[in-house]
Design a protein around this nucleic acid. Structure first.
Length: 607
DNA sequence: AGCACGCCGACT
DNA sequence: GTCGGCGTGCTC
């Protein structure tokens, strides 16, 4: 007997081994096998007859039986192909870590029954979570439930909520749990001993007792496509799983992805929304030509005074953590000499740092361009806003809550003693006991100006979330230089459909997702010349494929140790299949222009 | 990804 | 003359 085994390595093919006498393994089972200098854990993907004299023998089984049945194993192959990631790395990311010892008995993983699929649903609206909870409560009577959350915190919160409401055990599968517990939780689901499972990305393939209901929480959250292989959004995995498994699927979102909204328009998703929920008063302040010297417009300042006088809390949202530094005399903006992007100024450390290459230099006193002394922070970062607000609202307790100040401490927003919180996006989620009754956007413009086709969706999502946060109690003030932007207008007017009409019009016109698929190739190479040669060769080969839009290679600037080039590709639904001969598992050895090619299918973040 | 070979600079 | 830099290629 010979088996093919895949490993958590960026290699495109499986490895074959001889199965020693007395060892019984099947596809879907994890094994220990010698590879290179030591034994590693891999997954058997195929078994066939043959003595395999020339092959090395397996070292043993890593588990008593298969962790994946045939159908999810096939799904992992589909995922690998669709994301152009290696099969072994894909599997490794989607099953719990193997246990130390292989002795514990394992239930046979359930096989999926094909067909009988239902149309997946898109759950939106202000009380979507309550409606989801009600459905789960009802369906848990006779269905297995699997929830996938964007982050561990969200998974933990839902686990608590579900077990409190339903009074049944909930299996947690995310990495917030110890490895052994994750494995046991998976097995408890496979055995049917527990009927509700919840986790993050690593729970996507977890067995759910049939018939199953799958749930993707906050389907528009970019965290559903975290770093590392496989480069695919959890939404795409669950849609495919539901189709193959014949299970029910709910996608929830306050502001769905444009992709999901469009699927619903096409009738491939069923919309489960209800009437409009309460909405706050949203003021849009045109700050064109203003706001250079002070972050607060008269309207926002007035709203703050009223709110504070009424004993309410204020959240001022800043959409970037740092400021850049610019010269007030000649207008020079200090940029990274290597990467060309604006350097971020940290007042506390008195230094300028580059986001891309991580270099950090002491902040200069004089303008590098005109030698003038008017070099000053540019743009409103949390530090500058906090300082300006503190000077004006001396009587109140003001705290800053951003990635820097929050590290290692309790989140400031949770501190209900603070009357004004100056924070970034994450602060929105953190308010629990005493929510703000005024949310002021210093300006969401940096998001709207992101060099990313999802900028509008990002901004809309944030503005909408803020409005939901204070709905029925308070108000929102948005200071912007783009007061007529459709994302701003739609959030102010609670016009979900209106936003997607404009957004999908724009996406369609410029050929973006969901109308065309995007792929980002990053070429890294030690030397400038080799990188350019590889990028040019690749560009020529890709252009030769035909039917794709291939943009010319663009230099990305240097990261600390390598020249980087980027090629942007556009194609149809079959883009991964078209690219696979060149970039996928069966790619041929490329002889010229050495370098490393990173493949990012359907990027969620272009910046 | 690790790890082992393999060809060019500064040292006992 | 060697030690060792990491560039290149392989792992069943």
């Amino acid at each position: 007997m010979i088996v093919d085994v895949v490993f958590d390595l960026p290699v495109p093919h499986p490895f074959s081994y001889r199965v020693p006498p007395g060892l019984a393994v099947t596809p879907g089972q994890r094994v220990r096998a010698p590879l290179g200098s030591r034994a590693r854990v891999g997954l058997v993907v195929a078994a066939r007859d043959g003595d395999g004299e020339t092959l090395k023998p397996l070292a043993g089984a890593a588990e008593a039986g298969p962790i994946l049945s045939r159908s999810p194993l096939e799904l992992t192959r589909w995922i690998a192909g669709e994301s152009l990631s290696s099969w072994g790395s894909t599997v490794a990311a989607l099953v719990p870590p193997a246990p130390r010892s292989a002795t514990e008995a394992m239930p046979a993983p359930p096989e999926w029954a094909p067909g009988g699929g239902e149309r997946p649903s898109l759950l939106t609206g202000g009380d979507r979570e309550e409606r989801l909870l009600a459905r789960i409560a009802e369906e848990a009577e006779d269905r297995g439930i699997l929830l996938v959350a964007p982050e561990i915190d969200v998974a933990a919160a839902w686990a608590g909520r579900l077990s409190a409401t339903l009074k049944v055990p909930v299996a947690r599968l995310d990495s917030g749990m110890a490895d052994g517990e994750r494995w046991s939780a998976w097995m408890a689901l496979a055995r049917g001993a527990v009927r509700i499972g919840i986790g993050t990305r690593s729970a996507l393939l977890a067995p759910a007792p049939a018939p199953a209901t799958l749930v993707l929480l906050d389907e528009n959250d970019p965290a559903h496509k975290p770093p590392g292989p496989p480069r695919i959004h959890s939404r795409d995995v669950l849609l495919e799983r539901a189709r193959r498994e014949g299970s029910r699927l709910y996608l929830t979102a306050a502001t769905p992805s444009a992709e999901s909204w469009w699927r619903a328009d096409e009738g491939r998703l069923q919309r489960l929304s209800d009437g409009p929920s309460p909405w706050p008063s949203v003021s849009v302040v045109d700050v064109r030509g203003a706001l250079r010297a002070h972050p607060l417009s008269p309207l926002l300042r007035g709203a703050m005074k009223e709110t504070l006088a009424a004993n309410g809390r204020v959240l001022l949202l800043v959409t970037r953590i740092g400021s850049a530094m610019a010269c007030n005399e000649c207008g020079f903006l200090v940029r990274c000499p290597e990467c060309g992007i604006a350097l971020a100024f940290s007042r506390a450390r008195r230094e300028l740092a580059c986001r891309l290459c991580r270099r950090a230099d002491p902040a200069p006193d004089t303008c590098p361009h005109c030698r003038g002394r008017q070099l000053a922070p540019f743009g409103w970062g949390t530090e500058r806003v906090e300082q300006a607000v503190r000077a004006e609202f001396r009587r109140y307790r003001i705290v800053r809550d951003d990635a820097e100040s929050g590290r290692g401490r309790a989140r400031a927003a949770g501190d209900s003693g603070a009357q004004v919180v100056v924070g970034t996006r994450a602060a929105l989620k953190a308010f629990v006991p005493r929510a703000p009754s005024l949310i002021g956007f210093i300006t969401p413009d940096p998001i709207l100006r992101l060099p990313d086709f999802r900028a509008g969706e990002r901004a809309f999502s944030l503005l909408w979330a803020a409005a939901e946060k204070v709905a029925g109690r308070g108000r929102v003030v948005i200071q912007t230089q783009h007061p007529t932007h459709y994302a701003v207008r739609a959030a102010a007017e609670q016009d979900l459909a209106g936003f997607y009409k404009d957004e999908l019009g724009f996406r369609s016109e410029l050929g973006y997702s969901p109308f065309r698929r995007l792929c980002l190739l990053t070429i890294r190479s030690r030397t400038e010349g080799a990188g350019r040669r590889l990028a040019e060769t690749l560009h020529r080969e890709l252009s030769g494929l035909g039917g794709l839009t291939v943009y010319p290679p663009a230099p990305l600037g240097r990261s600390p140790r390598a020249a980087r080039w980027q090629i942007v590709l556009k194609g149809g639904d079959d883009l991964p299949a078209r690219l696979s001969p060149l970039l996928g598992p069966s790619r041929e050895r490329r002889g010229d222009g050495r370098g490393i090619i990173e493949v990012e299918m359907d990027p969620v973040d272009l910046a």
